[in-house]
Design a binder for these strands. Structure first.
Lengths: 126, 126
DNA sequence: GATATTGTGCATATTCAATGTACACAATAA
DNA sequence: TTATTGTGTACATTGAATATGCACAATATC
């Protein structure tokens, strides 16, 4: 369970954690039934309080990604491979649709946007 | 000058206004020398206080997009067509790079991402 | 010069993220 | 059965960011 925080992103801690867990579930690193680390352990590891961790877990539960049980822990919720696939595609589509709308509003052509996308794909770092 | 606010975006008011103005300048709807409406007028139109409007204008000024003069108003700053073009490309690249990173983190291939992008391009509405 | 219009600054209220601490429930060991 | 440990949960508080209202200063208009 590798989690990290970047102060530079501007996003609140609970949001960063949510995003990372979400990604790990969607890409298969975390599977149905897997136990999440206790929120205290995560908090200690990241040198933060339990609250943002708790909140991230809460939102993951509300989104149906995990289930939590008092005294036992939190676990990745069961989800069919098909649903997982559909969710993944839909979330990626949302993000790209957003970017597409933005590029269109700037007057770019689809070809230009595709060019920029593949450029970004090649050099993820910068 | 059409401006609007969406409570659903989660973004602060001043940020929404900044983004919209920015887009209108970049796509040419607003040109060098054009006068912006007085911040009070915008505030009244949107039924908000002047502060978020002021702040949006401030950040636009800091970014070099507009110039403000006490008693006279605010105006789109002069900017060469080349610079405008470069800025546009760079902002589009940022947005796409972000989306690209997200899609990669989900384990998508470039081809899949490109497919989703062109789909989104075709049907902007949904 | 008088007045209206414009951007600016300051004190205040509100919202939200994060902290610390105390509580409630479940599993295990004695 | 009881005590202990490990787990998620709830509450009161702090601090920062956002938004409000009103007063101020500079410019334009008459």
């Amino acid at each position: 369970m590798d989690l990290f925080l970047t102060g530079s992103s501007g996003l609140p801690i609970y949001r960063q954690l949510f995003d990372q867990l979400c990604a790990q579930i969607l890409d298969g690193r975390l599977k149905s039934g897997d136990a999440l680390p206790p929120i205290r352990a995560v908090a200690k590891e990241l040198s933060i309080s339990v609250i943002p961790v708790k909140r991230a877990w809460e939102e993951l539960e509300a989104a149906g990604f995990i289930e939590s049980f008092v005294g036992r822990g939190c676990f990745i919720a069961p989800m069919s491979a098909e649903k997982l696939q559909r969710l993944k595609a839909s979330m990626a589509a949302d993000k790209l649709s957003d970017a597409a709308a933005y590029c269109r509003s700037l007057g770019l052509s689809l070809a230009e946007a595709e060019r920029l996308l593949s450029d970004a794909w090649a050099s993820p770092g910068e």
